[in-house]
Amino acid sequence: MVRQIYLIATGIVFTISIWMIFLWAPTEINQGQVQRILYLHVPFAWASMVAIIAIAFTSFLFLLTKNDRWDNLSQSLAEVGLVSAVVMLFSGIVWAKPVWGVWWTGEAKLTTALVLFFIYCAYLLFRNYFPPGNARNRIAAIIALIGAIDSPIIYYAAQIWEQNHPKAVVGPLASEESSLNGEMVITLLFCVLTVTLLFVGLVWTQYQTNKLLRSKNV
């Protein structure tokens, strides 16, 4: 019941944020309409980054307490985190082409995001392919921890890589940075809030679903 009210509230907030994105926020001068992708891209990037830290945290708690609830929460977080990563990657690709002139570059953030997506895949794939039981849940938690420890190293490596390889960016925004005015910043912050609410709502729903699925398996 609480969850339904929460989800309805999230829906209302989401509607407001769509109004803000398309009607309230002004069009950016350099990039035009396409810049509005920012309001979705950044929040989902935020969500997928926070999710991996959250999974590492819940996995650690699971290893410590051996309470199945933490394991279930890690799984739900990973499932929603994977979706966030897909939205982030796709919106990024669509945005990059008109603005930078390429679909993809070797920029550190992009590489890290892509590898992050694969780590989510690996984690969920493992959960599916390994015989279920206590051993699986424990190893899954260990994999999540390893993935979380690895992500900053990947980011660092991608940065060194970037230094050697000048960006192949030729679009209208190759040299100048975009400037955000007040209304845009407010819209962006509001969208981050919206996506965070949505993220929590989805994890919550997924958590309940997984709980039901698990109890059915007895």
Binding site: A122, F126, Y129, F130
Partner: peptide
Amino acid sequence: VISSKSSSKEILLTMLLIPIITPILMF
């Protein structure tokens, strides 16, 4: 060792191994 217990060893090992070793792969 982890993937040897699973029925889909090849795909599981590759999926786990390659993302994690990305830094030294770049190196």
